[in-house]
């Protein structure tokens, strides 16, 4: 399982990059969903999102999930590539698979990579 150390994580399996303000779905989450066939980003540029508010709706062959904002802030970019290429979330969840970028975010209450790794391992067993 790929859990980059420069990112912060939520209990609902989203990641946040404090350096760029990007957020998305973790590798663990994409693995659980399996083959993702549809992504809809449900927020737009300029909108302010609160932590825990849905930012995207994801559907795989067998499952569906909401992705929630890992932090609050003003949306400054939305990844337009995802809707046409939802499989990016399976192949590259952390780089090409970013969903939205926010500015002015406070990364409080999130797990670091070590804590998140432990959290994922607990659920596997």
């Amino acid at each position: 399982m790929n859990i980059p150390t420069n990112l912060k994580y939520t209990k609902t399996d989203e990641w946040f990059d404090p350096a760029t303000g990007a957020m998305g779905l973790s590798d663990y989450a994409q693995g659980q969903l399996s083959d993702i066939v549809f992504v809809e980003i449900v927020v737009s540029t300029g909108e302010t999102v609160a932590p825990g508010k849905p930012i995207a709706s994801v559907e795989s062959v067998k499952a569906a999930a909401e992705t929630y904002a890992s932090v609050g802030g003003k949306v400054v970019a939305v990844n337009e590539d995802l809707s046409g290429n939802p499989e990016i979330l399976n192949t590259d969840p952390y780089v090409k698979g970013w969903m939205v970028k926010v500015e002015g975010a406070q990364a409080s209450g999130l797990m670091d990579a070590a804590a998140y790794t432990k959290y994922c391992e607990e659920r596997v067993h």
Partner: peptide, 13 residues
Amino acid sequence: TLTAREQHIKRER
């Protein structure tokens, strides 16, 4: 196909 849109998977959503 695209069954994840439907109620048996997406329930109230």
